[in-house]
Amino acid sequence: MNSNPNLQPSNESVIMKKPTLWTKIKKNKVAYFFLMPKLIFFTIFMLIPIIWAFIISFQDRGVFTVDYVGFKHYFEAFQSPIFRAALWNTFLYTIVTVPAFIITALVIAALIQPLGSISQTFFRSAFYLPTVTSMVIIAMVWRWMYNYRFGLFNYIIGFFGFEPVNWLGQTSTALPSLMIMAILIPPGAGIIIYLAAMNNISPSLYEAAEIDGANSFQKFMKITIPMLKPTTLYLVIISTIGSFQVFTQIIMMTGGGPGYSTETLVHVIYKTAFRDFNFGLASAQSVILFLILMGFAIAQFKALRTDK
């Protein structure tokens, strides 16, 4: 490229003394070349959108005009009853489902761990299979299972002498029905991650406890659970983020209704942005979602780390 022979010697002597930033960049052009494809897509479809999302949340976007309106959309969001209902429902949904995920994953992993490798593989796959299946499919069949007249659920509770329930059709049971569904889908990833972590706990800890006369329950509570703390932290954060983003079930099963009883944050963001085309408000809502998740992650990190 820059091959003026007269400059060559002086250039080299510069390198010998102290390489400038530019020469370092030139020397590593292969590295930038390898990074380039990822960086291009990352910049256009991740970096710019993230920064832009914050900017749009302060804008009113018309067809031809863009006005800056300050925090208007943030006030609007918190004043709107749908958004407040969504915030509350999402919060409730997360509070109920995340502990359930963690406990189920822990219990199932603890049950699987002592088994032989064939049954371990079998159960890991059986519990992970629903996780790979699209939530759209799962939501469709659960809507059918919750059917008032012909659904599997009313048939099963009929066995125990209960009257049929209009699961998704009334405000009092719609959100709990979605929670039950979330809880009954096995936390496949959680089980596998817990299992791996359990296999990493040194057997000598258990042997020492056995010598001291600890029973299996004591060993589980005093060794297994404390040793799994980093894994638990990781899973709590991951599943909180997942639960907070609940959307597919809502749009496929209830549409946020009846009333606002199953509105969730992401469903409201979706409706605001792509049904009402109010991009400013939708961006403000999604920034709020982001800040809540950040807050949660930091709080959980601190809570589970400090009491070591």
Binding site: L21, K24, I25, K27, N28, A31, Y32, L35, K38, L39, F42, F45, M46, L47, I48, P49, I50, W52, A53, I56, I241, F244, Q245, L265, V266, I269, Y270, A273, F279, A282, S283, S286, V287, L289, F290, L293, M294, A297
Partner: peptide, 26 residues
């Protein structure tokens, strides 16, 4: 190479950002 750590951390820090945040701009 120059800029390596900035690039790395900028990319990694977007892992925690929920998909919905970038929905409208994208």
């Amino acid at each position: 190479f120059p800029g390596k750590w900035i690039i790395f951390w900028v990319i990694i820090s977007t892992m925690m950002i929920p998909e919905q945040v970038t929905l409208v701009p994208t």
